[in-house]
Each structure stands twice: as structure tokens, then as C-alpha cells.
Design a protein around this nucleic acid. Sequence first.
DNA 1: AGGTGTGAAGGATTTCACAGCC
DNA 2: GGCTGTGAAATCCTTCACACCT
Lengths: 213, 213
Amino acid sequence: MTKASFIPAPVVRRLSLYLRQLEALAPEHKPTVSSRELSVGLGLSDAQVRKDLAYFGQFGQPGIGYDVQALISRMRRILGTDRVWRVVLVGAGNLGKALLSYKGFKKKNFHIVAVFDADPEKVGKPATPDRSLAVQPLEEMAAVVKATKARLGIITVPAEAAQGAANRLIEAGVEGLLNFAPTVLNAPPHVVVSSVDLSVQLEQLSFQVNLSR
Amino acid sequence: MTKASFIPAPVVRRLSLYLRQLEALAPEHKPTVSSRELSVGLGLSDAQVRKDLAYFGQFGQPGIGYDVQALISRMRRILGTDRVWRVVLVGAGNLGKALLSYKGFKKKNFHIVAVFDADPEKVGKPATPDRSLAVQPLEEMAAVVKATKARLGIITVPAEAAQGAANRLIEAGVEGLLNFAPTVLNAPPHVVVSSVDLSVQLEQLSFQVNLSR
DNA sequence: AGGTGTGAAGGATTTCACAGCC
DNA sequence: GGCTGTGAAATCCTTCACACCT
């Protein structure tokens, strides 16, 4: 593996976008793609694409470009999605259930293997219409995470319950958290946390829209 | 209004986080907060908070800090959430329905006023369990957006349908789009686009988790 | 010609550090 | 003593531009 000691955050964010673009244009069966072609759709410069990819070694052919399939494989390995990631979800509310039936995760090799909720009313009931998973009580988390070898957790509980859910997940041995609750999570340094606050996204829009008038 | 001619993107992103922190600590009835107190929870430096706020004028008291309530009001006005934003949603699938019943939006003054879907099977059916909104056909969009004075649109359709949905929304006069489809959207410069790709979020996690071992 | 990889230059953002105010 | 607002310095990131490859 390359000496990818430290990668700037903006680069990591773009990596996923490159992969998405590549996968979108793979069906066209063009064997290669240039940094320019990759960059235009994303509103970036061609130099940026080359610099970003150069963090992980050099796999372009001067005069030709990048081999699409090879680059896809390489990017998947870099991002870690060449293998299955087992994920547990805490919070069987509306958002949690929506994520459970979201097809995109499985396509990207993220498999949700268990669902937990604090509400005794929900425990035992099927978490999805297809009844593939039943909601389990929080107490089971440690055992289930261990048994399923899940390494990631998704938090879709109310803000007040988020830190508690995070603590349990961390205790159970999860290595990364995707948090949808509108609050900051504290976690030890060996646990990676990424947050999506849906209201914040809309706020960004309302700010920008107000600016342009 | 202040000469907020141009605000760097990183600053805008943090603005929402400041407001969220402030709202979280408002119930404690502490009258003021220091840049340091605001910064620690978010993992930022105190200087950063002060610099960011300084873009919009100066409302701190040396030796005291910032008046919590005043800062909240000010931030809401800056972000545009001191008024109601009417929002329409396209795509009555799982994610769309989850967003419809997400309480956080209304709390932040974002009101979803209509739901559209291309599937004739879904049209006419209630979009939420509480039956407050019925799914409408895409053809109605222009008229409904006009009638409801909606200015923002949320896209929760499959990737293949996203650009089409965006075009219709733009045509109908919407000024900002929040896109959950895993694809890049093209839009004219007067329309602001913000995207959330759920799989990309998990990919970021798998990358970071792989790094730290 | 068309295209990559990369030092060097340029810009943007963050941190430092301190004068000045409460 | 505590804290803000802000120039100056430092750091981080992007763009330029070109040697080199096919």
C-alpha cells in the first residue's frame, strides 16, 4: 500500500465523488477517462483531480488518461468499499426505517445487520416491511455487534438520546459512527464520527438563497 | 444589513453549528457565552469563532462574551431562518416519507407544503401516516409551487430521475435544491444546489476507519 | 496532438498574539 | 482577570505551467 500517511479532508471528500462519476460512466464502455473529463462534471479543475489521485500513487497513462475499470477498483480499495462493511442502526424511527430500505447502501457494500431501539413498544416488531430484520433492545447491542462483526453504527435517534446511543455503540466495539441527530457527539480518538444534520443542510440553502438577491 | 458581500464556504458551514450549539445551551439561562465555550464543543479554536462572527459585525462584549439570546436572533436572521421557508418535496419513497415526518424541519422554520411523485400508483394517496398531505403528480408542480410560494425543493428520487426532477423544480421557480440522489445536478447560477449522498457519508467513514489501523 | 505528474506560485483559511475594553 | 476584535504570520489547499511520456 502507498504511504498514504495523511490525506487532507477535502481530498477524501472528493474521492467518493470521483468514484461515483466513474461508476456512472462505466456503462459507456469507454476504456479510459482523462482528468479533465472527470473534473468537468464535478465543477473542479483537471489539475485538482490529478493532484488528488497522485496522493495514492500514479496510475494514469500520459497521453491516454486513466483506465476506467482499474481506477474504479483502485478507488474502491482506497475507500475500503471493496469489502463488505457490516453496520448496525440505532433508532427505528422514520429516518431509521428509511435508511434500512435504502438500496444504495447495499450497492456500495454496506450491509445493515441489526436494528436497535430503546422503545419497548418497537422491540420485537419487524423493522422493515419485508420483515428481514426485527428491532432489538439496546441491551443486546454489545452481544449483537460482537456476533455480527459489525464495525460501523448509524445513529437515527432524537438529539437527547444520541450521546447515549453513541456510548453504547462505542462500548460494543464499533469503530465508526454516522450520526443523524442534530448534536455534537463526543467519542474517543480511535472512533471516527461523521455527522449529517438535515436541518443544517436546509439552513445552508436558505442562507445562500438570501445572499443571491 | 452588514456588507456581507462574500462569506467563505467553511464559515457558512460553521454558522449553522454555532446556532445549534447556542440553541442547545439556551435553556441553561446563562446570559452570555464566550467564544471559547462555543468553540470547545465543536472542536474549533476560539479565535475561529470570533473571526467567523466578525464577518457579520461585532456583537461581543470584551470581558463578557456574547449575549446568548441576541446572538441566536442574529444568527437566525443571518441564516434566513427567522422566517418560514416553504418547501416542496419530490419523490415519495422511503426517504421522502421519512423527511416528511421529520420534526426537526418545522422547528427550524422549514415547512414542507407539497409532495410530488412520478408514480401514478402513489398519486392521490396520503404521503404521511397523519394524512396531512397527499402525493401529487409532477404535472401539478409549476402551479403548486406558484400557489404555495415555495422557494426550496427537496429531491428524493432515484439518481436517474434526479435531473428531471430538478429541471421541473427550477422551471417552477424554486430557488434552492436539496438533493439526496447520488448524482451531480446541473442548475443555472441563480439556483443554489446542496447535495447529501448517504452512501458517500458511509464511504468517508470506511476510509477513515481503515486509515486508523 | 493529447495527457499525466509535479514543483513552484498563488490564494484562502486558520492560528497567533496582542491592544484595548469591561 | 476575562474576553473581544483584528492585523500579522503560518499553514493549508488550489491553480499554474511545464517537463515528460505515448
